[in-house]
Design a protein around this nucleic acid. Structure first.
Length: 901
RNA sequence: GGGUUCGUGGUCUAGUGGUCAUGACGUCUCCCUUACAAGGAGAAGGUCGGUGGUUCGAAUCCGCCCGAACCCA
């Protein structure tokens, strides 16, 4: 086999199992991470070769296709880390994991960027040429984001990469459009839509963001026709020409009996009538408002409800049209000023005042949107069906479900899916130039660009003409991304719509619940009749080290590349995992990355120590004579593996990693390794083998469990462990099967005795490795553990250590009394507090005497007598060395330790 | 204005009714003991935002108040 990867030392071929003697002293993350990343790619370690549509064997991640901005930020890193933890964990569980990567290419920002880079307007060049420029630009953006994904060690299968701008993908978008049209879920109609005057396109509700700004409230007199004038308040005088009615609240006494009164619109002269509507805010301004077509969504509601005229005054590019008379041709802002001035000059303007207002703006360019009535393509929104499917999905965390419910319930318009742009999926439809009939493509003629090709149908089915005009409108990009689960499951080549099974996991941020999650529930749900996914994992946002939202202007941004360069991808990933439980926002903290990095070094050193005692036969050592310490760590490792597994299954990455780290550091490194050293260095062969085998099994288990979080270090360690093949990422979850409660209790005694004696040495000025004359362990009466194997303890504390029967030959002093709350509470109810207090104040010696002489304890408090079961009360006793004795007494959980220095 | 989430030692964080509240970072003391000083052994540090209630018992459940973030109008 050719040698492909060389370490800096040039001596090791990573394809070979490395001998223990070669274990490097130091871990060099920069070198290891990039080398392993290359190796995973070369060997296609994460290649998916299962059946994506088989829910019994496949674990499919509905990976977000990010918008190719060219920059993978730290929020992406959190989102993708969660996916990677889940994907890697499920691989270790033996599932067929499909972790793909898509790119949501289409959209306005790219068009704008390309126009900027090329110094052109999109209309300056032919559509296909402009589109090609966008594709080219997008390729570069994707490459740069992929590089960061690679540096972070994410385990996508790049064979499953998809780009929505590829015809193979957008053909599917078109096909899904056709399917929905066949079910009458897509229609074309004239309806008021949100319109961005700068981008020159319709946008959906989800694309409108509120922005706060200072406006001016104008008080304007509307002269009455054969009745009294009424003053209205408006922030938008430029809409006067579009005024079609005046509205007041039915309960507003100021306007009693004014319904149907007629008024003349100032400056423009047309007449409007008063309507009454409960939605009018009496507190605002004069309590009378003008209804225009359209100032905002409220106007649309009133317009429809009261069956008003339509007077449109805005053009698609944000100017006033001929309806506005003298003001035609002005921009909206110019008109606002000009109309206000003229109102003032003509005496209609009574007053103005500044006011805070919230206006809808285009989420891509922040330009305030207008509402225009336009003929557009719509997708029907079936709120009930969406809510029902959302209910079937498991939301993590659960409360994020509420966000979707609220958004869905608040939807009042269907989804406008047509955009008057270029770089997007073409709407596969044509209009007959002769009779106006609209024809939608059939599924088998997709992908098709109707501006380039005529429909397969040939002649118009209505009039027989073959003069077609291709639809130039394109689709909302969410039409592309809302079918990702279907795409991943192999539709339409491998499965039909009715064969679709929900994929395993949808991971995404809460900022796109109202878009990506909503539209996927709508589209994939409607098309397949199924919920799109089993679980949806919502991640929080990543805040800067100062606790604020990251922003360039605040200067508190941290890029994934920075964190990787400063420490390592493995450390950065751990820091993100521990930042909080999934769903909560994560404050990025360098100290977390640093402490993770230290843990990596620590683990490397643990393995370096362990590896020094391994040889090729270590994994196969059969039936070794385990001592208590071995059984203890084996049992604990078994329990940790089961706990970590449960946490990972529940997507509690923080809890899983925390438990794993504490086990590796506290139990394995601080306790077990220290206990086993005596046998490893000086034990007879049989004694050594038990410790070697134990060390091997536990190190191997820890390495595998850490692999989802820190895939590089884990895989590098794996290469050095004897008996391993290939990558740790193709290994199995640890199965030690050594859980034993009794043995764990015995091990705790040994570990605690070790700690206590070390603490005693520390407190008394002895070096940790000081020899002691003798150590005696006495168990408390009734202790669960009655004997332990002191061999390892003895080696570790450098002293003979024995378990002694009976009581230590020193003075025994009862020092404290404790009552069991969970027994005394329910028994004495309201008096429990008194009883507990009496117990605390009682003389421990008296209580002890009562315990010794019978099964009950009698207490007196507040003149009452209380009788307690003796088992509910614990008397704490301490042994005290008598003066002049050469012995120290150490109290522990399990009993008493006498130390003879 | 409606809704959701959150408030735990200096900082970040775990903990949904039961004895001394978890861990990390930071701080202090001692120690270079043959895996690791990016380490080891110890220590100090918290009225669990405030308040009222439910309960024998509340960081945990409920009400109100204060503060923060997000979603919606």
């Amino acid at each position: 086999m050719p040698t492909r990867f060389w370490r800096a030392s040039g001596r090791i071929d990573s394809d070979d199992s490395r001998a223990m003697t070669q274990f490097p002293d130091d871990y060099d993350p920069a070198e290891v991470e990039s080398r392993l990343q290359q190796r995973w790619l070369d060997e296609e370690t994460y290649r998916f070769d299962g059946d994506a549509n088989d829910p019994d064997t496949a674990y499919v991640v509905d990976t977000p296709p990010p918008y190719p901005t060219g920059e993978l930020h730290i929020g992406h890193a959190l989102n993708w880390s969660y996916m990677d933890f889940a994907a890697r964990f499920h691989r270790l569980q033996g599932d067929d994991v499909l972790f793909p990567q898509g790119w949501d290419c289409h959209g306005l920002p790219t068009e704008v960027k390309v126009e900027e880079n090329e110094g052109i307007q999109r209309t300056d060049v032919p559509r296909d040429e402009f589109r090609e420029m966008c594709v080219e630009h997008t390729r570069h953006q994707i490459d740069s984001m992929k590089e960061t994904m690679r540096e972070l060690g994410f385990s996508q299968d790049w064979n499953a990469e998809f780009r929505t701008m590829d015809p193979e993908y957008w053909g599917k978008t078109q096909q899904s459009f056709v399917e929905m049209a066949d079910d009458d879920l897509v229609y074309r109609d004239e309806h008021p839509v949100n319109w961005c005057p700068r981008c020159g396109t319709a946008i959906a509700d989800a694309e409108v963001e509120p922005i706060d700004r200072e406006g001016t409230l104008h008080y304007v007199t509307f002269p009455g026709v054969d009745n009294d004038d009424i003053e209205i308040a408006t922030t938008r005088p430029e809409l006067l020409a579009a005024c079609v009615a005046m509205a007041v609240h039915p309960d507003d006494e100021r306007y009693d009996g004014r319904e149907d009164d007629t008024f003349e619109v100032p400056l423009f002269g047309h007449e409007v009538e008063v309507v009454e509507d409960e939605d009018v805010d009496q507190e605002f301004g004069s309590g009378a408002v003008m209804i225009c077509t359209f100032g905002d969504k409220q106007d649309v509601t009133w317009w429809a409800e009261h069956d008003l005229d339509l007077r449109a005054v805005f053009t698609e590019d944000g100017h006033l049209n001929g309806e506005a008379g003298d003001y035609a041709g002005l921009t909206i802002d110019e008109a606002k000023e000009a109309v206000a001035d003229d109102l003032d000059a003509e005496g209609y303007l009574n007053d103005t005042e500044p006011t805070e207002q919230s206006v809808g703006a285009c989420w891509r360019c922040d330009t305030p949107i207008e509402i225009l009535s336009k003929e557009q393509w719509f997708v029907e929104v079936d709120k009930e069906a969406i809510l029902e499917r959302a209910e079937e999905v498991e939301w993590i965390p659960e409360h994020m479900h509420q966000r979707l419910v609220e958004w869905t319930e608040g939807m009042d318009w269907d989804w406008v899916i047509s955009r008057q742009r270029v770089f997007a999926t073409p709407i596969p439809a044509w209009e007959c130039a002769d009779c106006g009939h609209r024809h939608i493509a059939t599924a088998d003629e997709t992908p098709v660009d109707p501006t380039e090709e005529p429909p397969a149908v040939g002649a118009c089915p209505e009039c027989g003409s073959d003069d077609w005009t291709g639809e130039t409108d394109v689709m909302d990009t969410w039409m592309d991304s809302s079918i990702t689960p279907m795409h991943l499951s192999g539709w339409p080549l491998d499965i039909d719509l009715d064969e679709f099974e929900p994929v395993s996991l949808r991971p995404q941020g809460h900022d796109i619940i109202r878009t990506w999650a909503f539209y996927t529930l709508l589209r994939t749900g409607e098309l397949t009749g199924e919920k799109p996914w089993e679980n949806i994992l919502i991640n929080g946002m990543v805040f800067g080290p100062d606790g604020n939202k990251m922003s360039k202007s605040r200067g508190n941004t941290v890029s994934p590349e920075e964190a990787v360069e400063e420490y390592s991808a493995d450390a950065a990933r751990q820091a993100l995992a521990l930042g909080g439980q999934p769903g909560s926002d994560v404050q990025f903290q360098w100290k977390e990355v640093k402490s993770a990095s230290r843990f990596l070094t620590k683990l490397w050193n643990i393995v370096k120590f362990a590896a020094g005692h391994f040889d090729e036969d270590t994994p196969d050592i059969a039936d070794p004579a385990y001592r208590d310490a071995d059984d203890w760590i084996r049992s604990k490792a078994t329990r940790v593996a089961s706990d970590v597994e449960a946490e990972m299954e529940a997507y509690r990455f923080d809890a899983a990693l925390r438990e794993l780290r504490e086990f590796a550091w506290n139990d394995l490194a601080d306790d077990y390794v220290e206990l086993a050293k005596g046998r490893l260095y000086n034990g007879r062969p049989g004694e050594r083998d038990a410790a070697r085998k134990t060390l091997y099994d536990v190190v191997s288990a820890v390495t595998r469990m850490l692999a989802p979080f820190s895939p590089h270090l884990a895989d590098e360690i794996w290469q050095y462990l004897p008996g391993t093949e290939g990558s740790v990422h193709t290994a199995d979850w640890p199965a030690l099967d050594a859980y034993d409660e009794d043995v764990e209790a015995r091990g705790e005694v040994i570990a605690e005795a070790t700690r206590e004696i070390r603490a005693w040495k520390s407190a008394n000025g002895y070096p940790l490795n000081a020899d002691l004359d003798d150590v005696e362990l006495y168990f408390d009466p009734g202790s669960e553990v009655e004997n332990v194997d002191t061999y390892d303890l003895s080696e570790t504390i450098n002293a003979p250590a024995r378990v002694r029967e009976g009581r230590p030959n020193v003075e025994l002093v009862p020092v404290d009394v404790d009552g069991d709350d969970s027994e005394i509470g329910p028994e004495f109810r309201g008096d429990a507090g008194i009883v507990l207090q009496a117990l605390n104040e009682a003389d421990p010696a008296v209580i002890q005497a009562q315990k010794n002489s019978g099964d009950t304890i009698t207490l007196e408090a507040d003149g009452e007598e209380y009788e307690l079961d003796a088992d509910w009360v614990t008397v704490e006793e301490e042994y005290r060395a008598e003066g002049g004795e050469e012995v120290a007494v150490v109290e522990t959980e399990f009993g008493t330790v006498l130390v003879y220095p």
